[in-house]
Simulated assay, not measured.
Amino acid sequence: MPATAFLVDGAFFLARYRKVWGDRDPNDARTVAKTVFGMALEHLKALDRPREALYRIFFYDCPPLERTLVKPVSGDSVDFGRTGAAAFRRELHDQLRRQRKMALRLGRLSERGEWQLRRSAFQQLREGTLAWDELGDEHFEPEMRQTQVDMKIGIDIAALAYKKQVDQIILVAGDADFIPAAKLARYEGIDFILDPMWQGIAPDLHEHIDGLQSVCPRPY
């Protein structure tokens, strides 16, 4: 029987979610979790595969920041573990665990307790619409990066391919970090499909996948 694995880069998915489903509340964790499951079923439908062909959904993310930091301009303290963003992430992970055929893969959030200028603020400074002496706490964000997530995606792709657990893998992602794993999967005979949720990809990326397919609404 054909089997399809559905892998989702959580950070990428959540960033695109706000653009694709602008009419939905991006902080409604239950709806977001159900959307992930719904996307997997839409892919199966588009590929003319039955629901029973869904092997498993893998969602890759990191726990929220749980530290108290001092703001760079005002000097006030902020407990990121008590912010709305942290509460949403915890609730989302809980809702994902409740979904059928869902495997939540959590990496680590690496941070050094430092602040960096937001990209939007940097652009405003370049355009002259914001002066240096007008910078406030809202123009900065904690310097953080995900670790272990790409490695977990690669390991799962390799395991699925070597163990012949599936004959098809659909990956929701937007960068080229997956290319080595995709090459391995294709070498093992896996049909590898990329879903960038209508985000553009580099032209040379097409040679490393077997298909490009987005099933979510196309944002304007």
Rank of each mutant, 00 (worst) to 15 (best):
R67C: 14
P72G: 13
G189N: 03
R67N: 15
I57M: 14
A176Q: 00
R56W: 14
M102K: 10
P180Y: 07
E114S: 10
H93N: 11
Q148G: 12
D156F: 05
G75Q: 00
V78H: 11
A33L: 11
W132D: 06
V172I: 13
D177M: 06
N27S: 10
K183P: 04
H43S: 14
R119N: 05
F6S: 00
A11S: 14
D210G: 12
F192H: 04
S110A: 08
V172H: 09
D25E: 12
D9Q: 12
Q124T: 04
I209K: 03
E66G: 09
R18P: 02
L65M: 15
L125V: 06
P63E: 11
Y60E: 12
E141G: 11
W132I: 09
Q165W: 14
G10T: 00
I155H: 00
R126V: 02
K164I: 02
L117N: 08
Q148C: 14
V70A: 06
A29M: 05
F192L: 07
D191A: 13
L212C: 15
P142N: 00
G107A: 14
Q95T: 04
L184Y: 06
H43M: 09
G81T: 03
V20H: 01
G154I: 04
L106K: 09
F178R: 03
G200L: 08
S110C: 01
R18G: 01
Y187R: 15
T68I: 15
Q124W: 01
M144K: 13
F80S: 04
N27T: 05
A161G: 01
P217R: 04
G22H: 09
P72R: 13
W115V: 10
F122C: 05
P64A: 10
Q95K: 11
G136L: 10
M197I: 07
V70G: 05
K152L: 15
L125R: 05
V8P: 02
D25W: 07
C62V: 05
D156T: 11
V166T: 13
D177F: 05
D94P: 05
L160I: 10
I179N: 00
H139P: 07
L54F: 06
V215L: 15
D177N: 13
W132G: 01
D28P: 03
L160S: 08
E207N: 07
V73T: 05
F140L: 10
A103Q: 10
G128A: 06
L135P: 08
L96F: 09
F37E: 07
P142Y: 01
L135A: 10
L205A: 03
P196V: 03
V78S: 12
F178Y: 05
R100Y: 14
A87P: 07
D210F: 00
G84T: 08
E127R: 12
E134T: 15
T83P: 13
E66T: 14
L96R: 10
I169K: 02
K45L: 04
A159H: 14
A40P: 02
I155W: 01
E141P: 05
D177V: 06
L125Y: 03
